[in-house]
Design a binder for these strands. Structure first.
Lengths: 191, 191
DNA sequence: GCACACATGTAAGGCGTTACATGATTAA
DNA sequence: TTAATCATGTAACGCCTTACATGTGTGC
């Protein structure tokens, strides 16, 4: 999947691994993230597979900068991936739910502490989302890629909305969960 | 993480790999799933690490059935994992969001078809959840494990609630996304 | 006789994280 | 001179999926 994210950004314009890491951090990290080590090694493999070419940026090079460019084969690969719709639900994983599922043996205080930490983290994530404007990214990308990104911004906004709604849902659930575990404090069922 | 799910169930009672696969399918698959191949190989590794012991069920054996039992070391490992609270957000991945993010070059019809398939799948998942009763599982587990699972059922219910609310959120988002992509049909912006 | 559920595995390979490693530029 | 940011990598290891593989028991 990371492969297609990289192809997607490189279909806009050539970028270095470092650029791509920052693009991912600031726009797709919401629903897909990757460490720089994975990005660099994936780019190398994609180049070996003929999907990309790379060259060191000679223009204004104070630092070594390997810039990747998508090939015809890469463009074709990306488009055929986009053309094949998902027909299954992507299955999600959630560490916290595993821990809650097996929490009957824990003390309510301990569980509450963990839930409240998660609540704060989700609150912070949600607040971070309110400061993101996809049209801002669209203007930036337009200046780099030399074309209009108005339509793209509509889809970027949709994924951002999804992230926001996910965090809002999660916060509501955490509040319910906290309330129920607090209720265990007052009536310890097996005491 | 699979390791701790297996330890969690085996802390209730001894089970075979096949049993554990069914338990996971019917109760944690919502937030964590695994193929039988991964379950079998993980169990073997855990046995090698001294967390489990196994023996073939000799009692009523028509079929070969390797039953795993948690050891003291396994119990200790599980408890120390539970005692170390999460301090980060588990990062989620969503294939559909990646596809939506890069959908500006696709035809609205194609995108709509994909979103509608996903809508149906999420609707089915949500309907499936309404037929699950954690207390039913609690009674089943009580008869196998020989203790009460009333408190456990409260936490199982919480994870089920989370799954339900996630699906409801996703359906709302899909409806919004479908509406916005439908709007692109009437006013094709770059035509 | 056939299909389906029960039951357990091996092997290959890609995905993803963590630790380790290096070195330049910029601003306080 | 010290810290932060820029910039790129290797190696080890575990996680996870997919394909391949085998055999029994039960019900129609």
């Amino acid at each position: 999947m990371l492969k297609y994210i990289l192809l997607g950004f490189l279909s806009y314009a050539p970028f270095s691994g470092y650029d791509l890491k920052r693009l991912i951090d600031s726009s797709t990290s919401n629903f897909w993230n990757a460490h720089h080590t994975q990005i660099y090694s994936t780019l190398r493999r994609m180049e070996a597979d003929g999907l990309l070419t790379s060259e060191f940026d000679e223009g204004e090079n104070r630092l070594e900068k390997r810039v990747y460019r998508i090939t015809g084969a890469g463009q074709a690969d990306f488009e055929s991936w986009l053309a094949a719709p998902l027909t299954q639900l992507p299955q999600s994983k959630d560490d916290l739910m595993v821990r809650v599922f097996f929490s009957a043996g824990r003390s309510p205080e301990e569980i509450l502490a963990e839930l409240r930490v998660q609540r704060r983290l989700h609150q912070q994530t949600l607040e971070g989302y309110t400061q993101i404007d996809p049209r801002h990214y669209a203007r930036q990308m337009a200046s780099v890629a030399g074309r209009d990104f108005e339509l793209d911004a509509i889809f970027w906004r949709l994924t951002l909305d999804h992230g926001r709604q996910y965090e809002e849902m999660y916060l509501r659930w955490l509040d319910q969960a906290i309330a129920q575990v607090e209720a265990l404090l007052t009536k310890p069922s097996s005491d």
